[in-house]
Amino acid sequence: MLLKVHLAGCLYTCFFNTLFFFERCATCLEPQNLTAVSEFLLLGLSDDPELEPILFGLFLSMYLVTVLGNLLIILAVSSDSHLHTPMYFFLSNLSLADIGFSTTTIPKMLVNIQTHSKSITYAGCLTQVSFFILFGCLDNLLLAVMAYDRFVAICHPLNYSVIMSPRFCSLLVLMSLFGSLLESQIHFLMVSQLTFCTNVKIHHFFCDALQLFHLACSDTSIHTILMYFMSAIFGGFPLSGILCSYTQIVSSILRIPSTGGKYKAFSTCSSHLLVVCLFYGTGLGVYLSSSISSSLQKGAVASVIYTVVTPMLNPFIYSLRNKDIKRALWGTISRIF
Score class of each variant (00 low, 15 high):
330 W>K: 15
208 D>T: 10
99 I>M: 13
234 F>A: 00
55 L>R: 08
150 R>G: 07
36 A>I: 06
113 I>E: 01
235 G>H: 07
143 L>N: 04
14 C>K: 03
47 D>R: 11
78 S>G: 07
59 F>Y: 10
52 E>S: 14
193 Q>K: 11
18 T>R: 05
7 L>F: 07
140 N>H: 13
223 H>T: 05
100 G>A: 04
12 Y>N: 12
312 M>W: 09
199 N>H: 02
41 L>H: 11
282 T>I: 01
65 V>H: 09
66 T>P: 00
111 V>Q: 10
190 M>A: 01
319 S>T: 06
207 C>S: 01
265 A>P: 02
291 S>Y: 15
156 H>L: 08
279 F>N: 04
269 C>V: 02
67 V>T: 15
153 A>V: 00
52 E>Y: 11
148 Y>A: 10
107 P>M: 00
112 N>W: 12
116 H>V: 09
211 Q>N: 05
165 S>D: 03
212 L>F: 02
328 A>E: 01
328 A>Q: 01
33 N>A: 07
53 P>H: 13
262 K>C: 06
276 V>A: 05
119 S>E: 10
22 F>E: 03
176 S>N: 00
117 S>C: 09
224 T>A: 14
266 F>V: 01
25 C>D: 15
59 F>G: 04
278 L>C: 06
281 G>N: 09
326 K>P: 14
333 I>D: 06
217 C>Q: 15
209 A>V: 14
69 G>A: 14
88 Y>K: 03
11 L>C: 13
314 N>E: 11
79 S>V: 05
71 L>R: 15
170 S>I: 12
153 A>K: 09
208 D>A: 13
75 L>E: 11
239 L>D: 03
15 F>A: 05
147 A>Y: 00
4 K>L: 15
199 N>V: 13
79 S>F: 11
303 S>I: 00
181 L>M: 10
70 N>K: 10
123 A>T: 13
230 M>D: 01
126 L>E: 02
89 F>E: 12
135 F>A: 04
58 L>V: 12
36 A>F: 12
9 G>Y: 15
103 T>V: 14
114 Q>S: 14
51 L>C: 09
140 N>L: 01
84 H>V: 01
303 S>D: 08
309 V>Y: 06
42 L>M: 08
182 L>Y: 10
38 S>F: 07
61 S>V: 11
318 Y>P: 01
30 E>C: 07
24 R>Y: 09
267 S>E: 04
196 F>W: 06
185 Q>W: 09
112 N>G: 08
148 Y>V: 08
25 C>P: 01
40 F>T: 09
8 A>D: 11
184 S>A: 07
165 S>W: 10
336 I>L: 12
104 T>Q: 11
290 S>T: 15
333 I>G: 09
187 H>T: 08
195 T>P: 04
327 R>A: 12
327 R>P: 02
147 A>E: 03
154 I>R: 04
219 D>Y: 02
10 C>K: 04
99 I>F: 07
236 G>I: 01
180 S>Y: 09
289 S>P: 00
166 P>C: 00
27 T>V: 12
1 M>Q: 13
